[in-house]
Design a protein around this nucleic acid. Structure first.
Lengths: 235, 235
DNA sequence: CAACTTAATGAACTCAATTCATTATTCCGC
DNA sequence: GCGGAATAATGAATTGAGTTCATTAAGTTG
């Protein structure tokens, strides 16, 4: 009982600080264990609080997860626009958006899984702040497409919404195995492949098939990577 | 207590029949309530068994769901090949595959949601029979693409896997809101749109070559971006 | 009809989320 | 400084679900 490293009883923090501590602990536990396996008792222990005290600040376990993801999302999207602003050209900008998403999945698989499988599926997701943030996030992609259409580079007879669904749906399916812990993937390569497929389509539209259009594509992808490098040096 | 419609005690069925009754009840309850909200007590009640008896036939709640979905999947895929065999041409066959998937989601949203959100996400999904059935299911799509490539109709420089991810990912994202109970969609129209986008791509590849930037132009643009990059790295 | 096999019961158990009456700490006006 | 309001924190109790198991009942077989 002489231990000083044990639970210091009666340590009282401001609401703000306590909330921050609980959310930090919760993020760690959720990340390690997933939603169902994450125990409030463990979160409480790591946050140095008693279990019941969490309910002063969060309605329930679910609410805690929502706030954790929300917090993560906000910091993640913070420098997004700035990075994007340095990249020019429809293809390169699309490439960046897709690559960025892939990179996020690659770096934070657990949190992404929580987002995909738990947050997004609950019936009140639409009223969440995360939903709104997510719409912002994907709206940029549609803006790029819209600009491409106005510039005459892209077809104007495709439902915009479907383009978004195709891109993000494709990313998600492509990363599914990785999220399940099976195998790995390379964000750069997958991004290139997806942009190529989305823009070019599967069919051969073939005036001259012997002329390799992919030379230009490969160069453009390379330039996109260079741009990314200057926008986000630690990629 | 004179009721004759109440639980008839001591009614004993063969293993087969009892399993069937429990699965029917489970499917109904899972469909109405989703996984978490579905109570074993309610399943037991509808199946006219006591709760504990379910554990004679199923390891746990999760196992029960797996078997329910498996059962549904099998009947669903039964007449698949036969239908497909009557359809000819790459585009039409792709269209059928996509439309069929959309139709399933449209008709059985709840079961699809269980499949997408619960089965597929659990860590041992890969060892499930449903996983194998699902691979069968999507393999047909890849066969169609492969045949299209061999016939020279489709590009041969696209990762097949990505095509599959794009198609099924797109379908899933497109139907997300519907699965959440928001709005509706038309399987016919969405299938047409998806096939069109997947085959044709987003870019305009005009017959009139003067309307699109040619390779030289695109290279010059790319180089211009590089120049911009080295001139003012944070423009 | 006796022995055996298997279906069914229902109460008990576990374990995690959640609630709440109570206690401790800090803040603030006098 | 000091008394009291506000609020952070406690820990024991409650709830509610899944799961287990010893026991009983029903059918089957020789």
């Amino acid at each position: 009982m002489a231990g000083t490293g044990t639970r210091r009883k009666g340590l009282r923090l401001s609401r703000e600080r306590r909330v921050a501590e609980i959310m930090a602990a919760a993020r760690a536990v959720f990340r390690e264990k997933g939603y169902d396996e994450a125990l409030l008792s463990e979160i409480a222990e790591r946050a140095q609080v008693v279990e019941g005290n969490i309910y002063r600040y969060f309605d329930n376990k679910r609410d805690l997860l929502v706030k954790v993801i929300e917090d993560w999302y906000e910091t993640m999207l913070a420098d997004y626009d700035q990075q994007l602003s340095r990249i020019h050209g429809t293809r390169a900008r699309l490439n960046f958006m897709i690559w960025r998403h892939l990179k996020t999945v690659h770096d934070e698989p657990s949190l992404c899984q929580l987002m995909f499988l738990h947050l997004r599926t609950w019936p009140d997701y639409s009223s969440t702040a995360v939903h709104e943030l997510n719409r912002e996030y994907t709206r940029r992609t549609l803006d790029i497409v819209r600009e491409g259409i106005e510039a005459g580079e892209l077809r104007d007879d495709v439902p915009l919404r479907l383009v978004r669904d195709m891109i993000y749906g494709c990313v998600e399916h492509r990363t599914w195995a990785y999220l399940r812990g099976e195998g790995d993937f390379d964000p750069d390569k997958v991004a290139d492949d997806i942009v190529d497929l989305v823009l070019g389509g599967l069919a051969r539209h073939g005036a001259r098939s012997e002329e390799r259009p992919d030379i230009a594509e490969r160069l453009e992808n390379a330039v996109a990577r260079l741009e990314r490098l200057s926008a986000h040096p630690d990629s």
